[in-house]
Design a binder for these strands. Structure first.
Length: 513
RNA sequence: GUGCCAAUAGCUCAGCUGGAUAGAGCAAUAGCCUUCUAAGCUAUUGGUCAGAGGUUCGAUUCCUCUUUGGCACGCCA
C-alpha cells in the first residue's frame, strides 16, 4: 500500500468522526518545505474552514489532537495558518519499508485493463534520428510504468510502408544504382547508399531501425505494417457509414469528424479514387479497438498535433466513446552543434542519427537526458555540449549510488538480517531522510504512471541518490568491522528502489563503476 | 491570420490537482581521501519565476492581454 493512501485514510477517518462531515478522498498531500516541519503535510485547514465556518488553524489543532490520541502510526502537529504536519513514527517507517521494499519487484495489484501504446512509428526511409529517440525513451518508460502499476501493456510500432514515400525511396535507390540523378522527390542523404543493392530498401531501413531500438533497450510486441491494414479500409469506412458519418462531396468521400469535435470534416477517399493518409490510419486504429484494447495511447511529435482532433474523432466514433484514448504530444528536439542549429531533414540528408549519439555518449546517459524532461517541454540538444558533459551526467550519479551500495553488500556477504533485532530509535538525520524517501517511491511510481510522465521518476532517483551519497559520508554500514543492522536494512531497500527505478527508465544498474 | 506547446539561476531543466523561506544537476570559488568506490561529500556565489492586469485568505501554478521562441494549419505523407 502506498503511504499516501494510509495517511489519507487516517486523516479522513478522524476528520469524519470529529466534524461529522464528508471529506473528499482527493485531499491534497504535500511535502513541507523543511524537514523540521514534518515528513508530510495536509493543507486541510483551508479546505474545511468554509464548510465548518471555523478558522483554519483551530480546525487543524482539534484534528491533530484527535489523531494523536487515536492511533500510533503517526504524530501530527498543527501549523499556522492551516497545515496539519505529519511525522511518521519509527515503527511505522520500519514496517512500511519492510513490507514494500525488502525485496525487488514489489508490485501493484493487477488491473484487468489492456493498454496499447504506439510510439516511434518512424517512416522506414532512413535511420532513426535523435528525435525518434525521445519517443522511444518516453514510450518505453511509460509502458514500463503502466506495467508496474498493473496494466496489461502492449507496445506497437506502426510501419508506414504503403505511402508514396516508399515509392520515392525505391526510385532513389534505383537511380543511384544506375548512376542517374536523384529524382525530384527523392532522398538525398548519404545513408541511402547503404541500401543501394536492396530491392526493398524500406525493409532494410526498418531492420536497421529495429537494431537501433534494441541497443537503446526499447522493445515492441509488434511491428504493424500499414500494408496489412489496406484490406480493412473498406471495413473501416463501412463502419463509419453505418453510423451516418460518411458523405460524398466534390467527387470525394468525407468523414464527418466535426460531429466528434474536429474543426472540419476530412477526406478519406480523394476524387481520383485513392486514399488519403488518414484512411489507413483510421483502419489501423479500428484494429486497436477490435483487438480488444481498453485504452489506446499514441505518442506523437508536436509536428503531428494537427492530427489529434481528427484521430480522436475517429476513435470516439468507432468505439462509441467507450475506449479511452490518450495522445501524448511530445515537443520536438531542437538540435545544435556548438550553438549552431542543425536543421534535420531526410530530404537534404542533414541528420544526426540515434546510433551516432548512442555511440558518442552511451545509451544510459542519452536515455536519462531524453526522459528527464517532461514531454510538453521542447528539448534543446547540443550534441557537442552533451559530449563534453557526458562524463558528468546525472545518470552516473544515480548509478554510482547503486554501485557503492553493491560494494558494501558484497563486503557484508551473507548476513542474516532479522528486522526484529534492531530498532530505528536514535537514527541520525540522513538515515531518517533516506528512509522517508524510500517510502515515497511507490507513490512516485504511481504518480509518474497515471500522469504518463517518467521525468517524475527520473527526478526522484536523482534526489534519493543525493540523499544516499550524503548518508554514505555520515553513516558507516560496516563500522570497525561490525555490521550496523538498521543501516544494512536501509541500503538494501535503497538498492531495490534504485534498481527498479532505473529499470523502468531503461537504464542499467551496474554493480561496479 | 488561426490553433497548439512553451518562457523559472550563467547553461540544461524540476517545482505534483494554487499553499508555509522558489529547487536540482552542470559551471564558478573554498575545503574534505590511514576504515564500506572522491564518478563522492561539505560550504559559498547565483533568480523583479518574460511583462501587465485579474480571480483568491493565498498565484511560479488558474484566467485575460502583450512580447519572444518552437510547431501545425492540403482531396501531401
Amino acid at each position: 500500500m502506498m503511504v499516501s493512501e494510509i495517511l489519507k485514510d487516517i486523516i479522513i477517518e478522524n476528520a469524519n468522526n470529529l466534524f461529522k462531515i464528508k471529506i473528499d478522498k482527493n485531499i491534497k498531500l504535500e511535502i513541507p518545505p523543511s524537514k523540521q516541519m514534518g515528513d508530510f503535510a495536509f493543507p486541510i485547514g483551508f479546505n474545511l474552514s468554509k464548510e465548518l465556518k471555523q478558522n483554519p488553524f483551530s480546525i487543524v489543532e482539534k484534528l491533530s489532537d484527535n489523531i494523536n490520541s487515536n492511533q500510533n502510526l503517526i504524530k501530527t502537529e498543527p501549523a499556522r495558518p492551516g497545515f496539519l504536519n505529519i511525522f511518521l513514527t519509527n515503527d511505522f517507517i520500519k514496517d512500511l519499508v519492510k513490507k514494500n521494499f525488502e525485496k525487488e519487484n514489489f508490485d501493484f495489484p493487477k488491473k484487468d485493463r489492456k493498454v496499447i501504446i504506439e510510439f516511434v512509428s518512424a517512416n522506414p526511409t532512413g535511420p532513426l534520428h535523435i528525435g525518434h529517440g525521445r519517443w522511444a525513451a518516453l514510450g518505453d518508460s511509460i509502458a514500463r510504468l503502466l506495467e508496474k502499476v498493473g496494466y496489461d501493456v502492449y507496445r506497437e510500432f506502426y510501419v508506414n510502408d504503403a505511402g508514396k514515400q516508399i515509392e520515392n525511396l525505391k526510385k532513389t535507390v534505383v537511380a543511384l544504382r544506375k548512376g542517374e540523378q536523384i529524382p525530384e522527390d527523392g532522398y538525398r542523404g548519404e545513408y541511402i547508399k547503404e541500401a543501394i543493392n536492396e530491392d526493398n530498401p524500406h525493409l532494410y531501413f526498418l531492420d536497421q531501425q529495429k537494431k537501433t531500438l534494441e541497443r537503446f533497450n526499447v522493445f515492441f510486441n509488434n511491428f504493424f505494417h500499414e500494408t496489412q491494414v489496406y484490406n480493412n479500409i473498406t471495413h473501416a469506412i463501412e463502419s463509419l457509414k453505418a453510423k451516418g458519418l460518411i458523405y460524398e462531396r466534390d467527387g470525394a468521400i468525407w468523414f464527418k469528424s466535426t460531429e466528434y469535435g474536429d474543426d472540419k470534416d476530412r477526406v478519406l477517399i480523394k476524387s481520383d479514387g485513392s486514399y488519403t493518409y488518414f484512411a489507413p490510419d483510421i483502419a489501423y486504429h479500428l484494429t486497436k479497438i477490435e483487438r480488444g484494447f481498453d485504452w489506446i495511447i499514441d505518442i506523437l511529435g508536436a509536428d503531428h498535433h494537427g492530427y489529434v482532433n481528427r484521430l480522436s474523432a475517429a476513435i470516439k466514433a468507432l468505439s462509441n466513446r467507450e475506449v479511452r484514448f490518450s495522445i501524448i504530444i511530445g515537443q520536438l528536439v531542437n538540435l545544435f552543434r556548438d550553438k549552431e542549429p542543425v536543421r534535420m531533414s531526410k530530404r537534404t540528408g542533414d541528420i544526426i542519427t540515434l546510433d551516432e549519439v548512442i555511440d558518442e555518449i552511451g545509451k544510459d546517459a542519452l536515455r536519462y537526458i531524453l526522459v528527464s524532461k517532461k514531454a510538453s517541454q521542447s528539448i534543446d540538444f547540443d550534441i557537442e555540449e552533451v559530449k563534453r558533459k557526458s562524463k558528468s551526467s546525472p545518470v552516473f550519479y544515480i548509478q554510482y549510488a547503486f554501485a557503492r551500495i553493491n560494494s558494501i553488500l558484497s563486503k557484508v556477504g551473507d548476513y542474516n538480517l532479522d528486522t526484529d533485532n534492531f530498532s530505528l530509535d536514535n537514527m541520525n538525520n540522513s538515515e531518517r531522510e533516506l528512509l522517508i524517501e524510500i517510502i515515497k517511491f511507490k507513490d512516485t511510481i504511481f504518480q509518474a504512471a497515471i500522469d504518463m510522465e517518467p521525468h517524475i521518476l527520473a527526478n526522484y532517483l536523482l534526489n534519493i541518490s543525493g540523499i544516499f551519497h550524503n548518508f554514505y559520508e555520515t553513516s558507516r554500514v560496516i563500522d570497525n568491522g561490525i555490521v550496523v543492522e538498521h543501516r544494512l536494512f536501509i541500503i538494501k531497500a535503497v538498492s531495490n528502489v534504485l534498481k527498479e527505478g532505473l529499470k523502468i527508465l531503461g537504464i542499467e544498474s551496474p554493480e561496479k563503476m
